[in-house]
Amino acid sequence: MLQLIYVSTARANDADCAAILATSRENNGRDGITGLLYSDGKRFLQALEGPEDRVEAALARIQADPRHRAIVLLSRRTVDHRDFGDWAMAHRLPGADGDLFLARVAQLVAQASPDVRATFEGFAEARRAA
């Protein structure tokens, strides 16, 4: 099973981000991909895990999507089991409580490997401070 983690910047407004989230839920559910998508409306940090061909196809769709720019692949590794048993999304609306959001991200990554957990928690903390 393949696990990819990438970061990107949104070329989108809040309505576009909502559409991206909805499309991600649909596509990943259909393709047997799990993971975590963090979005604060400006940045995306996503872990995708599942069958290699489907994860690669998902990344190709994301790279071709004009609503994303500056996509950077942070990690690509083969895993024996899923870090994320269910597909989950964390989306912070502008003005939302930062501490509650950080607690939600920590809950979502609690079962992930230490490296994945640190990536998401560190990114969420840095974005809260931005």
Rank of each mutant, 00 (worst) to 15 (best):
W87L: 08
F120T: 04
R11G: 05
L4F: 09
I71C: 10
E26C: 07
L4D: 00
D40T: 04
A118I: 04
V7L: 09
Q63L: 13
M89Q: 15
D40K: 00
D80W: 11
T119C: 14
H91V: 10
R104T: 13
A124Q: 01
S24I: 00
I71R: 07
A10T: 00
Q111T: 14
E56Q: 14
T23M: 07
L45W: 07
E125Q: 15
E26I: 10
D31Y: 05
R69C: 12
H68D: 05
A90Y: 03
R69E: 07
A15Q: 05
A88L: 07
E52V: 12
A64H: 10
A90R: 05
R67N: 06
P114E: 03
L59C: 11
A106W: 03
Q46L: 00
Q46F: 01
A12C: 03
D99E: 15
E49G: 04
L102G: 15
G35L: 02
A15S: 09
F120Q: 07
G98W: 14
F120D: 04
R104H: 15
R54P: 12
A70L: 14
A90N: 02
V7Q: 08
L36G: 03
W87I: 00
H91L: 06
T34E: 01
L100S: 13
V109F: 07
D97A: 09
L37W: 03
